[in-house]
Write a protein that binds this DNA or RNA. Structure first.
Length: 948
DNA sequence: ATAGGGTTAG
């Protein structure tokens, strides 16, 4: 039985193995008995704590004072011995105890000191003391001595002493020069090691490796101490090539069984990102039984660095028989944090408490961070408060925790407290506060904090820049964004070149910022500038998302397909999918939307993303005109939330299926989902688009009476729309008069729209005058008013509006319709003759109109002659974009298959009539989406029933 | 005489 196993202290994290623990081992060492006793005690305590933690009892979480652990009465032991052993046994894990025992302690006063500091530390202290005495020798004195020695004739022993003196005076070049004069011998390797160590510590990594080469060319052989230093240099560069070649030297010189060298190799490979090599070295160490806690920590750290917390956790739980030390915990806690494994995190916490490792600042910080990442801010707070020693990292973990759980006020409060208590703020603190503001869309505030940061002298880094740019993106502050861009260009030069991911992240943020500031051209310029190999998912997603949000859906989808068509395709994530689906929804690109749906089904996404993606799918199907499939998606969801229900509800509303919408709303109530103001906006919208006036009025009352929701402007606007569409314009006007707040533009737009449908000139003029007062001088206002005049045959007024628009420079957006064909989207503008099938299209249209005239269709010439839409073309009704699109649809769609048309503006009145007639004579359902709603034309009937 | 593993941010 090895000493290691006997002395294993309790390991909560490997509890199953506790039962198989070996019984007491008799020993002649009285101290060993004490240690064993104590460890048994801890084992019992940790079991109790583990149980307590499982029951969420947090009273045991405070560090237990050592005095609580009383030795049995029969135990003969001087108290100071006991104390020191405890500190050792609990603080540092097993290996120091082993080295302690191996160094042969006895219970005298001297060993007490040794116990306390550890034998190795004691030696180190003594060495440092000696160095201090040497430091009193100034460089000049050493040089003098050197001269004297040279004159007298030097002997190797004296020269060696000189090297030491030069090193202690921090004169490495003199030391090196002197060292070169010495004959190579194992005893003087020490000085090479010292020089190399110095270089590594000062991060002169290349220099360290150069020294290593030089010592060999001078005839020295590196020893077991040399390798850890140079391997560290390779790991920090990092340079796999040189690290691996050092590994070769290690084997040639026979140091592969040295634990220190082995651990350094594992760490080096880990830092170079070569997990396979790291693992191979580690496994060999396991087989030769030389692996210790540090070996395990190194391999766990390697997995963490490679971004594989799962594997790290697996390894962590495999280190049976060795008890995790402070570094083990600090390594593994971030894994629990990223996996949101709060239960394991709590166990680790309990373990840290029993072993007193919690007193280690790093451990405390890691625990606070773990709780914060798991969203358990109250637990984080408790641990944070009880930490006796805190540093910036502890505070930062709390600040960022609050900021990310949305408790921004608390984050700011802590930030102020840090300033008050004069805690030294660092980049992380500043970045977290900047990010907090940015996430809440407070771009100017985040810039202000940035300014303060620069004044305070903190050096911004990548994270700061990314946070700032997202602030500019949220606030849409292009000028500030450009300023940050300039700053970033300067900073990128300073970014660590090894971390190319960092640079890409800044570039991604820049693309995002420009796109959100509506500068998609600039965004695209930067995107195109990135080498395809350097683009990552985020690069693609921000560009696609940027196009989607700016309504450039075609560009978005083009880019999305490019993304999948690359030689080495980038795998989209949930955000990419959502952006692409958003673009589909915008274009009503049902065919592409279906393809993306297929992609989603084939490539199962992360569990946490399923709900999100499904909701996007519902939205896409609804807006692309297929509510029934949206319903199927909805029915098949394992989990739904308010967004899923309201999306579908909106869908039924848009398609004029009011009864189904109300059924769904009742389902929502039964399912106990939270019903809020937004839900009612959607319900009222559905009523108004289906002409369910009474129901709408009823629900408007229910909203306040049963749900206690105070109607907002948007609810009043819905009511105006509801009553107005139904032709009850007086009642609509009454609602406006009753409103407790100032009517906002949406209210007047609703009224104006109704006036257009029901040709009420007087009220229409009133509504548009209100709109102009509110500064809504856009093409929509003028067009609606002009159309009202045209309907009322008031041509002079139509002309007046036309001149007014010319005067103010407001131009009508051209009408545009598109159809999803098999080969892609066909787009038609008014009077468009650019399509290859143009001739056939016009012929077919002429034909159809001839046929429906026979059925009673009379073209509405008001639209033809005086619609501002088509003013410049002076066109005929036939040339309206929706009619062209329909004809194209008929030409290219198989009989029986629905034709789906989308128009950017409201459908023209004449076209609506014409298409209703046409639906009688063709074998297609026509599904037309205009800027207001969906129209399903079938057998001479439209689903909107005139409510449009 | 010298050696190996570590926390926070987007």
């Amino acid at each position: 039985m090895s000493l290691t196993t006997t002395l294993s202290s309790p390991n909560l994290l490997t509890l199953p193995h506790l039962s198989s623990h070996a019984p007491h081992r008799t020993s002649s060492f009285p101290m060993a008995a004490i240690i064993r006793r104590h460890l048994n005690h801890i084992r019992r305590r940790s079991l109790a704590i583990a149980a307590a933690v499982r029951q969420q009892d947090t009273t045991l979480w405070t560090p237990t004072p050592l005095a609580d652990v009383k030795p049995a009465a029969d135990q003969i032991s001087p108290p100071e011995d006991y104390q020191s052993v405890l500190i050792f046994a609990t603080g540092s894990g097993i290996s120091p105890i082993r080295s302690l025992i191996e160094s042969g302690f006895s219970a005298d006063k001297r060993s007490d000191v040794r116990l306390f500091y550890g034998a190795r530390n004691l030696q180190r202290m003594a060495y440092q003391d000696r160095l201090k005495s040497w430091e009193s020798n100034s460089l000049i004195k050493v040089k003098l001595l050197h001269q004297q020695l040279t004159v007298k004739g030097s002997d190797p022993t004296a020269l060696q002493k000189l090297v030491g003196m030069y090193i202690s005076c921090d004169a490495p070049s003199h030391a090196l020069a002197t060292l070169s004069l010495l004959p190579p011998s194992p005893s003087s390797v020490f000085w090479w090691n010292s020089l190399i160590r110095r270089a590594v510590r000062l991060r002169l990594l290349e220099h360290a490796l150069e020294l290593y080469n030089r010592m060999q060319s001078f005839g020295w052989r590196p020893d077991g101490y040399t390798f850890p230093f140079v391997l560290k240099a390779c790991g920090e560069l990092p340079s796999f090539r040189r690290g691996a070649s050092l590994h070769g030297n290690v084997c040639i010189l026979g140091y592969e069984n040295n634990v220190f060298v082995g651990n350094a190799l594992v760490a080096m490979y880990g830092r170079c990102g070569d997990l396979e090599c790291a693992r191979q070295v580690f496994d060999e160490m396991l087989q030769t039984m030389i692996a210790d806690v540090i070996s395990w920590n190194s391999i766990v750290a390697a997995y963490m660095q490679s971004g594989d917390p799962k594997k790290a956790m697996q390894m962590f739980y495999r280190m049976n028989g060795l008890c995790p030390d402070a570094v083990s915990l600090v390594n593994i806690l971030p894994a629990f944090a990223s996996a949101r494994a709060s239960l394991q995190g709590k166990e680790a916490h309990a373990y840290a408490v029993t072993t007193q490792l919690i007193q280690d600042l790093f451990v405390g910080n890691a625990i606070v961070d773990m709780y914060a990442k798991c969203g358990l801010m109250d637990d984080a707070q408790k641990v944070f408060e009880r930490m006796e020693v805190k540093d910036v990292v502890s505070w930062n973990a709390m600040v960022t925790g609050h900021s990310q759980t949305g408790r921004f006020e608390d984050a700011l409060g802590l930030f102020e407290k840090m300033r008050g208590e004069k805690v030294e703020l660092n980049v992380v603190t500043w970045s977290a506060v900047i990010a907090g503001y940015a996430q809440r869309g407070h771009g100017y505030e985040s810039l202000d904090v940035f300014r303060q940061m620069l004044v305070s002298g903190s050096e911004p880094n990548v994270v700061t820049l990314v946070s700032l740019l997202s602030g500019c993106a949220c606030a849409g502050t292009l000028l500030q964004g450009k300023e940050i861009h300039c700053y970033a260009i300067k900073q990128i030069l300073n970014i660590n070149k090894n971390d190319s991911g960092d640079e890409q992240m800044v570039i991604n943020s820049l693309i995002d910022m420009y796109a959100k500031c509506k500068e998609d051209g600039l965004a695209r310029k930067i995107f195109d500038h990135v080498a395809p190999a350097s683009r990552n998912v985020v690069t693609w997603t921000v560009m696609i998302g940027g196009y989607s949000q700016l309504g450039e859906a075609n560009d978005a989808l083009e880019l999305f397909s490019q993304m999948l068509k690359q030689n080495k395709p980038t795998k989209p994530n949930a955000f990419t999918i959502s952006c692409a689906l958003m673009a589909c929804a915008h274009l009503a690109a049902l065919r592409l939307g279906r393809q993306i749906h297929g992609y989603v089904l084939r490539n199962r996404c992360e569990k946490s993303d399923v709900l999100f993606v499904d909701n996007c799918l519902i939205d896409m199907y609804v807006k692309s005109g297929d509510v029934d499939v949206a319903r199927v998606v909805f029915n098949n969801m394992n989990q739904t939330n308010v967004v899923s229900w309201t999306s579908l509800l909106t869908g039924y509303g848009m398609h004029g299926r009011g009864t189904e919408a109300l059924d769904l709303f009742n389902g929502m109530r039964k399912a106990g989902l939270p019903i809020d103001g937004v839900t009612f906006v959607v319900v009222l919208y559905a009523c108004s688009h289906s002409g369910l006036v009474d129901k709408g009025v009823e629900y408007f009352e229910t909203m306040t009476r049963e749900f206690g929701i105070v109607p907002g402007v948007e609810h009043y606007a819905c009511m105006v729309d509801l009553l107005g569409r139904a032709g009850q314009l007086d009642k609509a006007m009454e609602i406006i008069k009753q409103m407790p707040m100032e009517p906002s533009p949406i209210v007047w737009v609703a009224l104006l729209g109704s006036c257009r449908v029901h040709t009420n000139v007087e009220l229409g003029e009133y509504a548009s005058s209100k709109l102009l007062e509110l500064g809504c001088e856009n093409d929509g206002t003028y067009t609606l008013l002009s159309n009202i005049y045209a309907d009322a045959k008031r041509w002079k007024d139509v002309d007046r509006i036309r001149f007014l628009m010319k005067d103010t420079g407001i131009r009508k957006r051209p009408g545009c319709s598109w159809v999803q064909g098999k080969t892609g989207t066909a787009t038609f503008y008014v009077g468009d003759k650019t399509h290859p099938l143009s001739k056939e299209i016009y012929n077919l249209l002429g034909d159809l109109i001839y046929q429906i005239k026979a059925l009673g269709y009379v073209p509405d010439t008001n639209f033809a002659l005086h619609d501002v839409d088509d003013e410049e073309k002076g066109d005929f009704l036939v040339e309206h974009s929706e009619k062209l699109a329909l004809a194209y649809g008929i030409l290219t769609t198989a009989p029986g298959v629905p034709i789906r048309i989308t128009k950017n503006l409201r459908v023209c009145g004449d076209c609506h009539v014409a298409i209703t007639y046409i639906s009688n004579i063709i074998d297609h359902e026509i599904i037309l989406r205009d800027s207001s709603r969906f129209h399903h034309f079938k057998n001479g009937y439209c689903s909107c029933k005139g409510y449009w």
